[in-house]
Amino acid sequence: MLKDLYRTFLEFLRTFGALQLFFLRLIAYSPAVLVRRFGLVVVQVFNAGALSLVIIMTCGFFVGGVLGLQGYSNLAKFNAEDSVGAFAALSLLKELGPVITALLFAGRAGTALASEIGLMRATEQLSAMEMMAVDPLRRVLVPRFLGAVISMPMLTAIFCVLGLLGAHLVAVDMLGVDSGAFWQQMRSSVESSDVWEGIIKSVVFGIAASLFAVWEGYNAIPTAEGVGRATTRTVVITAVSVLVLDFMITAVAI
């Protein structure tokens, strides 16, 4: 029993180390791929980013609307409903924007990446590439990784802007908060460091989400079941690690 535990621990350590090495290799190949195979990266920005736009925009809008409603009903108890703009902007920029975007991104783009790469593995396309002396890491994985990493900050920014729009619509147009007070309170309480905190978070989450997606797909067991399991694991690992990373970055930032 103890021996089993010991073996599991060793296996975990091995996977963890392999993940780090895999990450380093992705980073090492990134500049060359970005310069020489820019077209491949563009296609992946389209797949990961542009195709996620609709879900990100819809969710951002409704999350902002909820912030407007909740913020209004709670702040109105203190006659501070003018601050709903500051409340919505700070929550969106610092926490909800990066985190929810990363979770949606894992569900929309991460699973697509993992299952695509896993299926390539299962149908032996990756082995075929290796036989033709094409490095699948450079041809398949790095462009997908880069495309996802580039997309995340932009998706987060779009999410935040749509969220503010939703909050404005609910608070100002539906509930009657003064539009000038809404913006003025927001501007006086949001500093550029808050915006940067959100951007840094979104970059880190983007790297984490795409790394796990690519890693799980690449190491999928080459069966139908294995690909399915890889897809599931991508979402679970990304969600957990994004929330843990969020706590760590927030703790450092404050």
Binding site: F46, G49, A50, I158, E191, V195
Partner: peptide, 26 residues
């Protein structure tokens, strides 16, 4: 694909610009 990507990047840049210039007043 190129047009979709261009649109997406443009939107993203616009959103970032909006966040850094319009919301902060410091």
């Amino acid at each position: 694909i190129e047009m979709g990507t261009g649109l997406f990047v443009l939107l993203g840049m616009g959103a970032l610009f909006f966040l850094t210039t319009q919301i902060t007043g410091s």
